[in-house]
């Protein structure tokens, strides 16, 4: 059972109260992008075995979207944070580094200098 904490409600709820929304922190490709870049934006997803940043929605609760860092293999949740974030906050990255090593934290934290 996957348990997530909604950062808006503060409730710890089980998976069935949430709706998954796929990979987080995708950068939109606009009209100036190439066909290849747009195709990658639409269809290419990371799908790692390990630490993954995801979008979730508290569908049966407050209805808000939020982001979660979890392990796709063990369902360990490293933290959840508001959807208005450009990258995982330092507390979540620290937790990932603590549990899975600095390499895993650097991989998901890469490209997200603004983690505020």
């Amino acid at each position: 059972m996957l348990m997530l904490v909604c950062p808006y409600c503060g409730v710890t709820a089980e998976e069935t109260e949430f709706a998954p929304g796929g990979e987080a922190h995708l950068s939109r490709v606009g009209p100036d992008g190439s066909d290849e870049a747009f195709e990658a934006y639409l269809f290419a997803r990371a799908n790692p075995k390990g630490v993954h940043l995801e979008r979730w929605r508290h569908a049966y609760g407050c209805g808000k979207w939020f982001l979660a860092a979890r392990c796709t293999a063990t369902l360990e949740v490293f933290g959840t944070y508001p959807a208005q974030s450009k990258g995982p906050p330092p507390a979540v990255l620290d937790r990932i580094a603590d549990r899975r090593g600095a390499g895993a934290a650097a991989r998901v934290g890469r490209g997200a200098p603004d983690a505020s």
Binding site: C9, V11, A13, T16, E17, Y60, G61, C62, G63
Partner: peptide, 10 residues
């Protein structure tokens, strides 16, 4: 107070 689901409905 809290919103949740009862069996299959909100």
């Amino acid at each position: 107070a809290r919103r949740t689901r009862a069996a299959q409905v909100a």
